[in-house]
């Protein structure tokens, strides 16, 4: 085009051969080495953290219109709409408090029964509010960015919840932001139990963002559509007893050893809203969890 008249050799350094074989091979080798080391998660934590700080402005910029729209909606909302919303929220609060009264009684009863059974008491964690940024990541993975990082004490493997249930876990911690894999990500599996029967199984992610599959249920397993799945806590990762998904379809083929069961997550996995980071209560006997707070220290002591 118009650049044609330019001499091919311009006087700048390195310009004579922009695609030199040595440079190409070197950079390709760097890429491959990076992928190798990154595949064993944890080796490149420092680089990931630095890069996440570097790209955070881009993510924040993409999120800005959504944040602005929310803010404007709040500021410009009509008085009547606000009053209406206030009334509705007050009613919801009342309903919830009534249910909470029962919960308190049930909890006490539960503790007493556990004492009778000499089982360890359930420990309650606390939660911290975070926001999912409206930024898409790899279209064939289900991942999301939140606006809290190591500065808020976020650690790798931490559970993320919303008002309805489990969202996923933190897989990468940066200084001011973190990456979260949703429970429907193809790389994720979560230990669940059917709330009705306490039947335990695994729910794994896949291609679809609103589908979990339960591939390890026998053909005669007692499950039916509508059953609630809650975390069992046996994976030592997710806290026990939180809702995960509702079974949507059970298909039993006598020719197959396992039933084909799918479930729909109860949490709102879409982006751009408030979520909760779960901090487990400190147990008297520490759980074998090497990941906890690992971002603050050098990663040499990682087992892998």
């Amino acid at each position: 085009m118009f650049a044609l008249h330019r001499p091919q050799r311009s006087p700048r350094l390195f310009s004579s051969n922009p695609a030199g074989a040595l440079r190409t091979l070197l950079l390709v080798a760097v890429c491959i080495a990076l992928m190798f080391y990154d595949h064993q998660r944890g080796h490149l934590q420092k680089i990931h953290a630095a890069l996440s700080t570097l790209v955070y402005p881009v993510q924040a910029a993409v999120n800005a219109p959504y944040a602005l729209a929310n803010w404007a909606q709040e500021k410009l909302a009509m008085h009547t709409a606000l009053v209406k919303e206030n009334t509705r929220l007050n009613q919801e609060l009342l309903m919830d408090s009534v249910q909470l009264q029962q919960t308190a009684a049930l909890e006490q009863e539960n503790a007493r029964l556990r004492e009778l059974l000499q089982a360890s008491a359930k420990l309650r964690g606390h939660v911290v509010l975070a926001t999912l940024l409206a930024a898409d990541m790899d279209p064939f993975r289900h991942m999301i960015v939140i606006d809290k990082g190591a500065d808020a004490g976020v650690y790798e493997g931490q559970t993320l919840l919303d008002a309805r249930g489990i969202i996923g876990q933190v897989i990468q911690v940066g200084p001011v932001s973190s990456e979260v894999a949703l429970i429907t990500d193809p790389s994720q599996a979560i230990q669940v139990q059917v709330n009705r029967t306490s039947l335990r199984t695994l729910a794994i992610g896949g291609a679809d963002v609103d589908t979990l599959s339960l591939p390890y249920l026998a053909n005669n397993a007692d499950v039916k559509p509508g059953d609630l799945l809650v975390t069992s806590g046996l994976d030592g990762h997710y806290p026990a007893g939180y809702p995960v998904a509702v079974i949507t379809r059970v298909h039993r083929d006598p020719a197959e050893p396992f039933a084909s069961v799918t479930a729909q997550p109860v949490a709102d996995l879409d982006h751009g809203h408030d979520v909760l980071l779960y901090f487990p209560a400190v147990a008297s006997t520490p759980l074998p969890k090497p990941e906890v707070r690992s971002t603050k220290k050098p990663l040499r002591r990682r087992p892998r």
């Binding site: 390195f14 922009p18 695609a19 440079r23 190409t24 950079l27 760097v30 890429c31 491959i32 080495a33 990076l34 992928m35 990154d38 595949h39 490149l44 680089i47 990931h48 890069l51 996440s52 570097l54 790209v55 881009v58 993510q59 930024a135 990541m137 790899d138 993975r141 991942m143 990468q172 990456e179």
Partner: peptide, 21 residues
């Protein structure tokens, strides 16, 4: 050239959460 491309590609990896590189 290649160096700029490499840097931008690494940034893209960080943004999409894919394997670095």
């Amino acid at each position: 050239g290649l160096l700029v491309t490499f840097v931008v590609g690494i940034l893209m990896d960080s943004l999409t959460g894919s394997l670095l590189g």
